[in-house]
Design a protein around this nucleic acid. Structure first.
Lengths: 322, 322
DNA sequence: CTGTCCAATACTTTCTGACTATGGCCGTTT
DNA sequence: AAACGGCCATAGTCAGAAAGTATTGGACAG
């Protein structure tokens, strides 16, 4: 019987008791409410003991559950100590995780990757390296870094991409621009004023695709200004040299606004690229946990029919590899 | 990281260390060798510590593994105590498991069911009830028993069958019978001497199918003697009133032998029948564990192309239910 | 050499576990 | 009252984890 009670279940029971309701606990645990309900029910079935008293405003732990909770906490700390002891004995230090990131990747995503990795592997140091996607991919192939956060498309020998987030692209303009009065911009409005771009050399594939997509709606992307960072991009807009496409929800400088483009939905995908041959064994766990957390909060806010920057469906499934 | 180390893995690590080789431990744990290898490897990857020193004659635990093993044992006993405590608090007694069985079901199977159930749920009493399949199924439908071990086919409203074992049927005869000199009997040899049967009223469906199968090879099953138990069946054979079909490998009385029938492979399936609505929440676990144990040792010893007593494939998948 | 024993790898299959959607219950609000 | 909102439970579906099979490779022992 005891094999049917594992530490994960105990941990979740504790979380439920602490939260006072299953739904709240589920949120904290990045689980759905039914999953957690079922876990508790399984415990009750196996032990044949009621653990929670349910009422309309939540749940309360029964005395039996209290025992399990205190004992469970003890077990959990003992397990941690045990692992600590075993690792200390060998005096092993984790090989640091060398994480590359492009400056055009959402900072929150980068933070999330770091925080999840350190919460999973507290003693594993992260060595961040910022760089251009094209360079990062090369470094990955050479084994100089373990993973990189870049925007798709991204390809390289022996690399695997795990798409994490998808954001809509919107037009960035000065707030006193005449077009800023409109709720939406039509492609025609943009005319030839979409001139401010990210430096194509940073990510040639992404640039080509973007130009391609613009072409589809009749916009010729005249690259007048190329920029190394999102910050520079906004400065250029501010200085009045034209419009730029940026990630919806980006933090904006004073005096700038963004407007969606009517009739199209351009999106940009951020992904973690990992070399299949990496010696970092932490990567699969990191990816799994990231996916778990992003699952529930995913999906773009509904606005327009979606049409991706990346024309082929296959890209979404296997954006890269050769 | 610690969430990636669960008690099951620790338990298996302990088993490996105790066994000295992964293969042996796998057998004891009713697992395949690769599964266990992978589990250990996962642990080593997560902890980034080598746990086993492999050589050609097995494995040896590293110091780090020793720590995990002693600590793990402690954790396991603490968990057991914890569960015990929680259950004791509520003074819950398991509702006993009422298990029916037909006397024509292999006794070893019955023993196995009981031993697994009590090893999973030590404090859950088993109340065995022997009876005829037809009666047992009725009792199941009425909720008077929780599960029954019978031979297929078996059907009933709201019942679900879990086939466990499949045995070949062989002809039982006196050892001084002229046919006993042959290695195999042909259906023609049997002629009309196959006259000793199980009481058809005990299990009408099974009887009908058997007659049907005999008919296919041109044997008319003249039911001259009907018997309530396998024991009685053998007595009848011994007394010389004819042949009987019995489960291969059955224990035989003095003076009796069995011979396979050439050209056909008749088999009999034993299954656990469970009422879907039973209040016994232990049943799913019992079934799962039984399947796990039978998986590795399953499959009939190769002898002849197989042809089942039960004519339709669908029976194997869903032998019953209405 | 060849056979045996053990562990590791590659690939496939099974089944757990998590999700979505929905329904019922109970208070609170309009 | 009726409608709404919060909470838990159930049903049904699906992806991914875990287990299995088959095979390879290495290291003796005969």
């Amino acid at each position: 019987m005891s094999d049917l009670v594992d530490l994960k279940k105990l941990k979740n029971l504790i979380a439920v008791a602490e939260a006072g309701t299953i739904s709240v606990a589920a949120k904290r645990l990045y689980l759905s409410q039914p999953s957690l309900s079922i876990q508790i029910k399984d415990l009750e079935d196996v032990l044949q003991v009621p653990l929670l008293v349910r009422d309309h405003k939540g749940v309360r732990a029964t005395p039996a559950a209290e025992i399990l909770i205190t004992g469970g906490r003890e077990l959990l700390t003992m397990r941690d100590a045990l692992i600590e002891a075993a690792r200390a004995l060998h005096r092993v230090t984790f090989v640091p995780m060398r994480l590359g990131f492009s400056s055009f990747v959402d900072h929150a995503l980068y933070e999330m990757v770091c925080s999840i990795h350190t919460s999973l592997f507290p003693s594993c140091e992260i060595k961040p390296k910022s760089g251009d996607p094209v360079d990062l991919l090369l470094m990955l192939e050479r084994g100089e870094i373990d993973a990189a956060l870049v925007t798709l498309p991204a390809s390289g020998a022996g690399l695997k991409a795990y798409p994490f987030t998808q954001s809509r692209l919107v037009v960035c303009m000065k707030s006193n621009d005449p077009l800023a009065k409109l709720k939406e911009i039509t492609p025609a409005d943009l005319g030839s004023k979409l001139t401010i771009f990210r430096d194509p050399r940073q990510h040639p594939e992404a640039h080509d695709r973007l130009i391609e997509m613009l072409d589809v709606v009749g916009i010729t992307g005249d690259v007048a200004s190329t920029n190394k960072t999102p910050h520079d991009l906004q400065w250029m807009v501010e200085s009045g040299s034209g419009y730029a496409l940026i990630r919806e929800g980006s933090e904006l400088q004073q005096g700038l606004v963004t407007r969606p483009v009517a009739g199209v939905t351009w999106t940009v995908d951020s992904a973690l690229i990992v070399a299949k041959s990496t010696s970092q064994r932490t990567m699969p766990h990191l990816v799994r946990e990231m996916r778990k957390r992003l699952r529930l909060q995913s999906s773009l806010p509904p606005s327009k029919p979606v049409r991706s920057v990346r024309p082929r469906i296959s890209d979404r499934i296997l954006p890269l590899f050769g």
